[in-house]
């Protein structure tokens, strides 16, 4: 029971850090994947007096990934009644060219603005339709979501740091006596602090192991996968190897820093 209590407080604090960090990373990944989906579905329409090739577009604007010329057939169909074939052909030649531009990523409103201005500097381009209203609201929604998660992660982080600083005092109190007694019998610092470092490493392993189990379960749960698929996200949100390594690294760093601080601030009792 005592040994369990010894581990519990630091493990809980470390879990807090790992959960906030991993949640933030997962949300970032999901948002990036969602943005990629949006980028696939989002496009600008450019109206030009003359033909512009895809190469010309891409040479000037690096953000453009794909250009498709829109056939004017639909417009002409609507005007078809009572116009003879010859006139339709003439009309086709007189109509401006319509292009749908796909972008490499989902742009911010500023990027859309600067791209529009830059396109309109071309004398042949008459109009650029950016569908600003729907784009801006989607982008703002994404930003809001990201900010909420960031605030959440930072809050959990701050609470955890407070928990850790409290833990630091408890550890200092608990381990100082043992370290002093061992020192009285000639134990070098590495030996008198070995228990502390062992505890720090074990707690880091326990915390990262627990976080790994929870995130592995969540990332493979049907409910989570279903929810992500519903919004068009089908990426792997939790990479077992790299994410576990990252969590273990962070947990070890925090707990070893804590242990080192106690060892450095330890003074022999007189």
């Amino acid at each position: 029971m005592n040994a369990f209590k010894n581990h519990l407080s630091l493990v809980v604090a470390l879990l807090g850090i790992l959960f906030s960090l991993q949640t933030f990373i997962i949300v970032e990944r999901a948002i990036d994947a969602y943005k990629q989906n949006l980028a696939c579905n989002y496009s600008l329409v450019v109206v030009s007096k003359k033909t512009i090739t895809e190469k010309t577009f891409q040479k000037k604007y690096k953000i453009i990934s794909n250009v498709k010329e829109l056939a004017p057939d639909n417009v002409i169909k609507k005007l078809n009644s009572g116009i003879d074939k010859k006139n339709i052909e003439l009309l086709k030649l007189a109509l401006p060219k319509f292009y749908r531009l796909k972008l490499l990523h989902y742009p911010s409103p500023d990027e859309v603005n600067s791209l529009t201005k830059s396109l309109l500097r071309n004398k042949d381009i008459m109009k650029v339709e950016t569908f600003t209203k729907s784009h801006d609201s989607t982008y703002k929604l994404l930003l809001l979501f990201k900010n909420v998660i960031t605030v959440f992660a930072v809050s959990v982080g701050i609470i955890t740091i407070l928990l850790i600083s409290k833990e630091l005092k408890i550890w200092q109190f608990k381990h100082t006596e043992r370290m002093s007694i061992m020192g009285l019998f000639g134990a070098p610092t590495w030996l008198s602090s070995a228990v502390l470092f062992r505890l720090a490493i074990v707690d880091a392993l326990i915390a990262s192991g627990l976080a790994f189990i929870v995130f592995s379960y969540l990332s493979s749960s049907d409910w989570v996968i279903g929810e992500l698929t519903n919004v068009g996200i089908s990426i792997k949100i939790f990479d077992k190897f790299s994410d576990f390594s990252m969590m273990l690294g962070v947990a070890l760093l925090v707990s070893l820093l804590l242990a080192s601080f106690i060892v450095i601030s330890h003074k022999e009792e007189v």
Binding site: E177, R178, I181, M182, G183, L184, F185, G186, A187, P188
Partner: peptide
């Protein structure tokens, strides 16, 4: 530390590791 390895100390409050 080397010297202390050759000294045995007894305290009034025992100073045992709990």
């Amino acid at each position: 530390n080397l010297l202390r390895k050759h000294i045995g100390i007894v305290f009034q409050d025992y100073k045992l590791i709990k």
